[in-house]
């Protein structure tokens, strides 16, 4: 077949294919971009222009309904504002952080490992977690007779530096001989949660590779008494600086026995 002939049988294909595709496009633009929003907007008392802008996504809201308004002024439970720069600087340990950390030695130990089990270990803790707690102590979102004063004496930069410093410090070694035999139901709570109570696994936030909320602290290598006291505080609403009641809502569903056993589990078990 000659090229001219080939072109001849090909031409209607090109023309018709293009016509069909363009008409379908035109059809969906006419209905989706114009007719539907205009008709829906009229019923909702919106002018045609607003309705079309909403349908196309230039204005928020549905073309068929009025937007609700809000003049809310609720007090947040924490004043921390996250940003990428903040997260990045919390990953960089500087000499300045070690200097600030001198103020922590008395309660949290020379290397961030507390001698008194009522106080938390800081060495190896997530930098984001330490930052958030110091920020909350400073703003008063979390209450502690000693820590509020100390945090108010630190500026924003110092809080970042000291948090990054402890995050980079080696955490407490566990003595495997102190590990108790763990109850099966506690392991289940840690690894599987309890569907009947809507309790997610502890591991789904606190596990090593959980990907949970960014300010989640590491619990393993922490002190038993400290952990138990915090869980009780969350449960009784004595501590309420967790964002969106993430921890209060969990602690509220735990029993006394579970709180003690969980605190013990995290204080003595290596693998989490």
């Amino acid at each position: 077949m000659k090229p001219a002939e080939l072109r001849e049988i090909d031409r209607p294909w090109r023309i018709w294919a293009s016509i069909i595709i363009v008409s379908i496009l035109a059809f969906s633009v006419v209905f989706g971009f114009l007719i539907l929003p205009i008709v829906q907007g009229r019923a909702a008392g919106l002018d045609a222009f607003t309705a079309i802008c909403r349908a196309v996504g230039i204005l928020p809201g549905s073309p068929a309904v009025r937007q609700p308004t809000s003049e809310a002024k609720a007090q947040p439970t924490t004043q921390v504002a996250w940003s990428t720069d903040l997260i990045r600087s919390l990953g960089q340990s500087t000499p300045a952080g070690a200097e600030v950390a001198q103020a922590c030695v008395a309660c949290h130990g020379e290397r961030g490992i507390a001698a008194d089990p009522q106080n938390p270990n800081l060495a190896g803790q997530s930098g984001v977690a330490i930052y958030k707690q110091l920020h909350d102590y400073k703003s008063g979102s979390r209450v502690h007779e000693v820590m509020n004063g100390i945090a108010q004496g630190l500026d924003g930069r110092q809080i970042i530096d000291v948090a990054a410093h402890f995050a980079a410090s080696p955490r407490r070694d566990l003595d495997p001989t102190t590990a108790e035999v763990v109850d099966e139901d506690i392991v289940r709570l840690v690894e599987r949660g309890d569907p009947a109570r809507g309790l997610p696994a502890c591991n789904s936030c606190h596990g090593f590779n959980a990907g949970g909320p960014m300010e989640t602290p590491t619990l393993s290598h922490q002190n038993r008494e400290y952990l138990a006291r915090q869980l009780h505080a969350f449960r009784s609403d004595g501590r309420r600086n967790d964002i969106y009641t993430r921890m209060r809502s969990v602690a509220a569903k735990l029993t006394d026995r579970e709180i003690d056993k969980l605190a013990n589990f995290y204080a003595t078990t290596l693998s989490y």
Partner: peptide
């Protein structure tokens, strides 16, 4: 949404 997804309702 993460490992706790199953218990979120």
């Amino acid at each position: 949404c993460g490992l706790g997804h199953s218990q979120m309702w």
